[in-house]
C-alpha cells in the first residue's frame, strides 16, 4: 500500500565489504519493479560513486533514481551516528518522485559492528557471505544480531571454502534469538524472492 504524502518506506542494506550487497540490489530491483513497486536507490561508498555507477550501467533503474553518497570516512558514520547525508538524499528522492513506494539504501562495506539508525530507515538487513567464514555468526557482531533480517549470501560457495552451511545458518538463528535468517546465491537468483517478500511484508504491507 502507498501512504500518500508520508514519503517512501526506507530499507537499509548493510554488511561487510564484498559480501554481495550490490549484487543483492541488482537482483532485488527488477523483482520489486515487477511487483509494481515504485523504487529508488541510494548507494554509499567511501570516496567514489562506484556502486551507483555499477547500478546505472546495469540499467536496472532510470539514472535519476540512483543517488550516491560519499561517506568520506567510516561508512557506518553516515548510516548511524550522523545519517544526515543519507536522509537528505532520501528526502530529495521523495520530492522528485512523490509516488515512490520504497528507497533502498546500501551502506558502504563495513565490519560486523555496522548498524543503521532507525531515524534513517524503517527496516534494515545485513548481508554476510559464506566465503567470509562460518564463524561470523558466532562472533555476534551488532550487525548480525540487531538487523531485522540477516542474509547469508554466496551459499553456492560453501563446499569450496570448507563451510558447513547448515551449522552456519543454525548458529545465525541461535544468536539472533529466532529473528529471520535467509540464504541467497545472488549470482543464480536463488533466495531473492524470499528477501523481497520479507521487506515488502515489513514495510509496504502489500505482500508478494
Amino acid at each position: 500500500m502507498r501512504t500518500n504524502g508520508h514519503g517512501a518506506a526506507r530499507v537499509g542494506i548493510g554488511g561487510p565489504v564484498g559480501s554481495g550487497k550490490t549484487a543483492l540490489l541488482e537482483r532485488l530491483i527488477p523483482l520489486l519493479r515487477g511487483r509494481g513497486i515504485d523504487l529508488a536507490v541510494i548507494t554509499n561508498d567511501l570516496v567514489t560513486h562506484e556502486d551507483a555507477e555499477r547500478l546505472r550501467r546495469a540499467r536496472l533503474l532510470e539514472p535519476e533514481r540512483i543517488l550516491a553518497v560519499e561517506a568520506g570516512a567510516c561508512p557506518h558514520t553516515v548510516i548511524r551516528e550522523d545519517p544526515t547525508l543519507n536522509m537528505e538524499a532520501a528526502d530529495s528522492l521523495d520530492r522528485i518522485f512523490p509516488d515512490l513506494d520504497l528507497i533502498l539504501i546500501e551502506s558502504g562495506g563495513d565490519n560486523l559492528a555496522s548498524t543503521f539508525s532507525l531515524d534513517l530507515v524503517d527496516y534494515w538487513l545485513f548481508v554476510i557471505d559464506v566465503a567470509g567464514g562460518d564463524d561470523i555468526p558466532r562472533k555476534r557482531g551488532p550487525g548480525v544480531i540487531q538487523s531485522d533480517l540477516l542474509v547469508i549470501n554466496k551459499i553456492d560457495l560453501h563446499p569450496y571454502v570448507g563451510v558447513d552451511l547448515q551449522r552456519m545458518r543454525a548458529e545465525a538463528a541461535a544468536v539472533r534469538n529466532g529473528r529471520p535468517v535467509l540464504c541467497t546465491n545472488c549470482r543464480a537468483d536463488e533466495g531473492i524472492a524470499a528477501v523481497a517478500d520479507a521487506l515488502c511484508d515489513a514495510v509496504l504491507y502489500r505482500g508478494a
Binding site: M1, T3, G5, H6, G7, A9, D91, S117, L118, D119, D122, Y123, D201, A202, V203, Y205
Partner: peptide, 23 residues
Amino acid sequence: DLPRRRFHSLTDAGTACFVALPR
C-alpha cells in the same frame, strides 16, 4: 523501536496494526 515509522504489531486485545507514519 520508538524511532520506527513502519512496523507490524498487535494491541493487547490482539488487533493487528500496521503502523505507517510520516517521517
